[in-house]
Design a protein around this nucleic acid. Structure first.
Lengths: 351, 351
DNA sequence: TTGTAGGCGTTATCAA
DNA sequence: TTGATAACGCCTACAA
């Protein structure tokens, strides 16, 4: 009955059911008026022929893929997991399917992500922590595709704004300043900073937060208390801690640009017999789950990944559904300091 | 020049460049013979009009999306991250784009993942830890889509096989047996088991490994040393440990079905002042990264996520590229026990 | 309530 | 080397 390896189309169904192709389409999509009897005939025929719609054909007509793309720089950082979960929940209720694309934070794959959107492989995109802006964002300028940027940095917000996208960001500069505040309240004057990657806007913000935090408290910025690493993963934190230690003049408190680095550094310091939370106060940013599992638990700044995720999803979806046109919304969220054992005595405001 | 909000097509380019649409297509795709001069004219016109190809139209014609789908049950388990990275590397070299889809391990979303493949939203799929087989796998039976199953269990391999897909799995039953062996060699006779989720085939295998391990050593299976949980995350491990403890007769060694559960349980036991690795030996499965960061470090079984990922990617790609038809390959990998502090004195074979 | 027919944007097969 | 032209599989006015 059905041809061997050939695509079954609505025409085949139409023939078998004894109706017109258009009727098949309407029956299968539950659109317009269909006699109950016809409906059943069509469904039976579709079933019998093992009919499978072809997305390419559908989207070519309808200009809809039913797909929402979420672009993420990496999967090493557990922090993203929480954001994605939040997006997921929000998206599923809308009937859209969320698919993920990893950019590696590289310009090449960030461009590919944009291409995916431009070429309409998906109806909209949430781009998390875009690293490189220069040439490709303008691609998307004219056709005003549903795109929401989520940045862990307020740094480039204004440049983005010009492009006309929704933008949700978190003020990580301020987050680091709060950490510095905490250390100062606890009486520290020798406050160091370990961070990376220097090419990341998200990093620069954090570094500037450190600088500004110090100057607010009229503390000098000492070169010897700062290590900037190539990357911001655990291994980099470990190395950086080692470098700082070997300089022979350890600060009494250290801000880390990312929790993961702080974790790596904890390893190093503990190997060296340095008691964290007693001899040395440390704190990270991101508040990933492991923070509370460490001993001592790692003080960190929660940057509301859930809220960001939900908001981002709502924004793209509202654009996709055309409920919202023009007027690009920018939202800045602020972090929340969460004091734990690693930062020493808790004089700071609790979280 | 270009109409306001209307799609720019190759017809527009053709008109502007003064050639035929077909020529435009060939020039842009670098296919067949094109005079240098024509090529340049076309490219200039495309540039000027800010032309963007439409994937839907392309795939409708070519039956190719350039997308490879990877379906994963969840993102909580860091174990998957390593697999995905491995797949990613392999896939990128081939020019394909990898996109991820989360199934939640639910039958509903596993079906959606299959639908994505059936409807050709992607050219092939790697499905990791499929939970529910019953009705939907048969969808894919007839058109023999490029699909590779990756299972952390050997349990259902034969059922899958009937459907005619490539299959890579890891013998986790044997992995647990090795853990039991280790405990026995270390002199334990009261060996417990904590695991979940009971509806997961991947779980059942591990549980049977426990049973078989005991019986090999002629140890009775004591109901009171076993807790089966609803899920296999940290919180579940914590609860299960509590339940086991409150029964008043703790075993001297416990196998966990998943590292995450073991981590949760460690929390509980340490809160209770029970010294892990001394009073109580424990071990997990999966060998996720945090294992070595815990104190004591968690003994576990490495299940070669990297190798699995690479292999899976190679298999789908080779099908997609039609280098391989028919003859479905099944590969069973075996885990590798890695002894660390949590399992007590190390008499076992090292890893 | 259903059938007809045109078109979505590309690619690919022909001739020319 | 290039230009017509016919698909690809589906949706959707519009007419019946």
């Amino acid at each position: 009955m059905e041809k061997k390896n050939q695509k079954v189309t609505i025409y085949d169904i139409a023939k078998l059911a004894g109706v017109a192709p258009g009727t098949v389409s309407r029956a299968l999509n539950h659109i317009g008026y269909i006699k109950q009897e016809t409906q059943e005939k069509v469904e039976a025929a579709a079933e019998e022929l093992n009919y499978i719609p072809t997305r390419a054909a559908q989207s070519l007509k309808t200009k809809c893929t039913g797909l929402l793309l979420v672009a993420i720089p990496d999967m090493e950082n557990p922090f993203y997991v929480q954001m994605i979960s939040a997006i997921q929940e929000e998206v599923r209720e809308s009937g859209y399917s969320m698919i993920l694309y990893y950019t590696n934070g590289s310009i090449e794959y960030e461009k590919k992500a944009f291409d995916l959107l431009r070429e309409h492989a998906a109806d909209g995109m949430i781009m998390v922590n875009l690293n490189h802006i220069t040439p490709y964002l303008s691609y998307l300028k004219k056709p005003h595709l549903p795109l929401v940027l989520c940045q862990m940095s307020d740094h480039l917000a204004d440049e983005y704004r010009e492009y006309g996208f929704d933008d949700i960001c978190i003020d990580t500069k301020r987050a680091v300043m709060e950490v510095v505040d905490l250390f100062c309240r606890n009486g520290h004057t020798k406050i160091g900073f370990i961070g990376g990657n220097q090419t990341l806007p998200a990093f620069l913000d954090r570094y500037h937060g450190y600088e500004e935090g110090l100057s607010r408290h009229r503390l000098p910025r000492e070169e010897r208390y700062v290590v900037l690493a190539e990357n911001w993963l655990e291994a980099d934190g470990y190395q950086a801690a080692k470098e700082l230690h070997e300089r022979g003049d350890l600060p009494t408190a250290i801000c880390f640009s990312h929790d993961l680095m702080a974790l790596g550094a904890m390893d190093y310091f503990q190997e060296q017999g340095i008691r964290i939370g007693e001899e040395l106060a440390i704190a990270g940013i991101d508040n990933i789950n492991i923070c509370q599992k460490m001993s001592p638990a790692l003080t960190s700044v929660c940057i509301h990944q859930n809220q960001m995720g939900r908001l981002a999803a709502q924004r793209v979806l509202s654009r996709i559904h055309q409920k919202r046109v023009g007027e690009f919304i920018k939202t800045v969220l602020t972090g929340e300091l969460i004091c734990r054992g690693s930062s020493g005595q808790i004089f700071g405001k609790k979280g």
